[in-house]
């Protein structure tokens, strides 16, 4: 129903703030979602952490730390994509019309939403890392605290890119039926083929896919900051992740600008 966009009026910061707040409040109120996301993280930590014995891995490889950091990074993927797709809810229930007819630009609407989801992501990452520490998977080094602090901006940046994917999908699809498709064909492959839970070694036939999965670099950066294990050069990680985040957020913006609400 809408094909007009107020491009020229720029970004309205109070509006960004209230939209961010809306996302965060909605997250906080959706207790079922919070609980299931943590239960899933705990399940992964326990199942993978205890099903593979230390002998499975080469000596000196700390799999439990590898796993805990991977699951931290995984939160970025899940929260980001499904958070971004959440805009479909607003489309379905009509609230998107209220947003679209307001005297603010679409960039404002998009930035508010993206920031809100990025903040949700960071909160969850922090809680899951705390769980990892509580389980004893991440060790008890005093410098871990500092490392977690550095993780925050990384999680924010990676989250932006992932939310971009969610927004692109959310503006295109029209109903919840497509959720399963997205889950199977986008989220799961990105998850399993990024070395979040199981390392993908360079003699594996999956390695090329791993290498071309941009999310692998987010996970790698995340892990190298947190526990010092890395597959790629850290600068390559930073480069790929930034390009990925910027590229997708721009694509997300374009798709949001073109969004037709009816």
């Amino acid at each position: 129903m809408s094909d007009l966009n107020l491009k020229h009026i720029g970004i309205n910061y109070p509006a960004v703030w209230i939209l961010t707040k809306r996302e965060v409040i909605a997250f906080w109120r959706d207790k079922a979602r919070i609980i299931s996301s943590f239960a899933q993280a705990i399940l992964f930590l326990l199942v993978f952490g205890y099903s593979l014995g230390q002998n499975t891995f080469p000596p000196g490889f700390n799999y439990k730390a590898y796993l805990a950091s991977g699951i931290g990074a995984l939160t970025i993927l899940f929260t980001g994509i499904f958070g971004g797709m959440g805009l479909m809810r607003d489309k379905m229930f009509g609230f998107m019309k209220e947003l679209i007819v307001a005297p603010v630009s679409r960039q404002t609407l998009m930035i508010g939403r993206t920031l809100g989801i990025a903040i949700q992501t960071v909160i969850q990452v922090l809680i899951i890392l705390t769980l990892g520490i509580a389980f004893g998977f991440l060790g008890y080094n005093p410098d871990l605290f500092l490392r977690i602090l550095i993780i925050i901006p990384i999680a924010l940046a990676a989250s932006m890119g992932i939310v971009g994917i969610g927004l692109i999908i959310g503006t295109k699809i029209r109903n919840f039926q497509s959720f399963g498709l997205i889950q199977t064909f986008i989220v799961m492959p990105m998850f399993w083929l990024s070395g979040t839970i199981l390392p993908i070694t360079n003699d594996s036939i999956l390695y090329p896919i791993y290498q071309y999965n941009p999310f692998s670099y987010c996970v790698d950066l995340f892990r190298s900051v947190l526990i010092g294990i890395n597959n790629f050069d850290i600068w390559l990680d930073i480069l790929v992740m930034s390009a990925f985040a910027i590229g997708l957020i721009l694509l997300g913006a374009i798709s949001f600008n073109k969004m037709d609400v009816s």
Partner: peptide, 26 residues
Amino acid sequence: IVFQEPSLDGDMKGIENLEIHAILYG
């Protein structure tokens, strides 16, 4: 404007719907 179809955010309280609107309209 009051649209033909509903356009409220059901997951927010009545007053919050109004607050969001007020801020969007500066």
